[in-house]
Design a binder for these strands. Structure first.
Length: 513
RNA sequence: GGCGAUUUAGUGUAGUGGCCUAGCACGCCGCCCUCUCACGGCGGAAACCCGGGUUCGAGUCCCGGAUUCGCUACCA
């Protein structure tokens, strides 16, 4: 790398940070860290109409949760601030004037209504070299008239004057040289007097230049306007320090067509946002990865793999691994359907690394949700339960499905299991089993198992049927960890009570034919 | 419509002219383990968008078409 790597993540605070934006931030971060560079966070709030309170804090908190570190920017300080575009009006005004003075831009008074009218009158109307001569702007009006209108407080915009007949080349690190004819570009609005704010394009170029950005890594939706940005660098005579561009592929719907939206998440049952979001205007709540039980390391890992690979078959990687391996050489160019099923799987290995006691703490709120007071159990008990079943879960909340019987007695018995394992003779055998369990000198798993198994074999009972009837009585269905580990934890009294209850409650509706 | 990007199993991807009888992972199916479910281990089904060309040889290079995605705002 020929110069210091400085990248930026520059979201708009128009709502919760979309998971696609998170991936963009992640790739920026990985690239910066891999190259020993800096990562900036800039807030692009140049559209005063779309500002949403709380969105900025949400962005900062999201990145923090995910471990995407910011070196400079909103909420983190730095030498190149302010990093909030709404606080940089003076800077933009100066550069707009520079473009105006150089004749690279002009003032236009056309109202939104007039533009709308022009667009309906002419099917493919575009504000450019072919049409600007017939519009209300400083190129067609006398200077005194322009001045008079401005002094009268007439609203205007500043448009970039695109010269036609140019082949503009965008050198994209991922896609190679992309060439576009300047004729198809329109005279983009750079500044609006209405709110004294630039549009994205101007603010973006000025800020990236002033903040010394070396690589602009953003979503593919920006590729069509990249030529405009190149032209702006030229107009400012900043081409020597123009950043490299990387346009990342987009995240698409898991099924069907189009880009990933919040509705897809609702429809298919996965979050589209890193953190839960409470919309201040509608009051709607959108689910987040954090609240849904995902570990940040898993989200990062899974997101990194959506459009990038390490060049070998490694799937599970820590942030440090990702930083070490990351490069655009292994990025794909096509949009990726959002593989949320793989995201679930990705949580599994990370969850396994957490020790049972800690997971037990995370399990307590879930127990409460199901009407179980965790205070009724010792931490040791809950931790043992977790230790027994955590290997089979992807999320802490799955613990309930796997281990609810440790906290509540079966309220029903799986009909299929009854049919298969509970015969008319079973109650008698279960009563014998109770006697055996009562007679056990030591009820621990290690000590209890062999005597019970011996009792089954010495009576020539069917091992599978007896053990499963036992399990059915205690658990309610034929699932769960090793049977004697369960009974050890439940204790002798509880185990025997459950068998009694089962004998009373399991009635065979119809005699087997 | 115009412009640009894009295209390997259901999904995410490996693959940069012979090592591809196309690899890995998720998901799916089966087997093993076992008192059960899960985990795990083993195995299976499943893909080079289409058509031309270049070449001794193409998933890999070229051309055309199609596909999908994006942009086409005083939004980013």
């Amino acid at each position: 790398m020929d110069r210091e790597v400085r990248v930026r993540f520059a979201p708009s605070p128009t709502g919760p940070l979309h998971i696609g934006g998170v991936r963009t931030a992640l790739y920026n971060y990985l690239f910066a860290r891999h190259n020993g560079g800096k990562m900036l966070l800039r807030i692009e709030d140049t559209d005063s109409n779309r500002f949403v309170p709380g969105a900025e804090d949400y962005i900062i908190e999201s990145l923090k949760w995910l471990g995407i570190g910011i070196d400079e920017g909103v909420g983190h300080g730095g030498e190149n601030g302010p990093y909030r575009q709404s606080e940089r009006r003076d800077i933009y005004r100066k550069y707009v004037k520079q473009l105006l003075d150089a004749g690279r831009a002009y003032i236009a008074f056309d109202t939104p209504e007039e533009l709308e009218a022009a667009r309906t009158a002419t099917p493919n109307f575009q504000y450019d070299a072919s049409t600007r001569g017939s519009m209300r702007n400083s190129l067609t009006m006398p200077a005194e008239e322009v001045k008079r209108l401005i002094d009268n407080g007439e609203k205007y915009v500043v448009r970039f004057k695109i010269e036609p007949g140019r082949a503009v080349v965008v050198d994209d690190l991922l896609r190679g040289k992309v060439t576009i004819k300047s004729d198809i570009l329109d005279d983009k609005v750079l500044y609006k007097s209405a709110d004294d704010l630039p549009t994205y394009h101007l603010a973006n170029i000025v800020d990236d230049h002033l903040m010394g950005i070396s690589h602009v890594i953003r979503g593919e939706e920006w590729l069509p306007s990249a030529p405009l940005h190149v032209l702006l660098y030229e107009a400012f005579d900043w081409t020597d320090s123009m950043p490299h561009f990387v346009h990342l592929p987009l995240l698409l719907k898991p099924d069907g067509k189009g880009k990933l939206s919040k509705r897809d998440g609702d429809r298919l049952g996965f979050p589209v946002f890193p953190l839960e979001w409470h919309d201040p205007i509608s009051g709607n709540i959108s689910s987040g990865y954090r609240e849904s039980g995902y570990l940040p390391e898993a989200v990062v890992n899974f997101l990194a793999l959506l459009g990038w690979n390490p060049g070998d078959d490694t799937e599970i990687m820590s942030m440090d691994d990702l930083i070490e391996k990351f490069s655009f050489d292994h990025c794909s160019r096509a949009g990726a359907k959002f593989a949320y099923e793989k995201g679930k799987w990705c949580n599994h290995p990370y969850l396994q690394e957490i020790d049972a006691a800690k997971i037990a703490e995370m399990f307590k709120p879930i127990l409460r949700e199901h009407g179980v007071n965790p205070e009724d159990y010792s931490d040791e008990y809950i931790t043992k339960v977790v230790g027994m079943v955590k290997g089979r879960i992807n999320f802490v909340k799955d613990l309930w499905d796997q281990a609810s019987f440790f906290f509540t007695r079966p309220d029903s018995y799986d009909p299929k299991a009854i049919k298969k394992r509970w015969s008319p003779e079973t109650p008698a055998i279960m009563n014998e089993l109770i006697s055996q369990l009562e007679a056990l000198p030591d009820f621990s798993s290690a000590a209890a198992e062999q005597p019970i198994l011996d009792w089954i074999t010495s009576n020539s009972y069917h091992m599978g049927n007896v053990m499963n009837a036992f399990r059915l009585a205690v658990v309610g269905e034929c699932k769960g960890p090793h049977m004697f580990d369960i009974t050890e934890l439940l204790g002798r009294e509880e185990t025997i009570n459950r068998i009694h209850t089962a004998i009373e409650r399991i009635k065979l509706d119809e005699p087997t034919v």
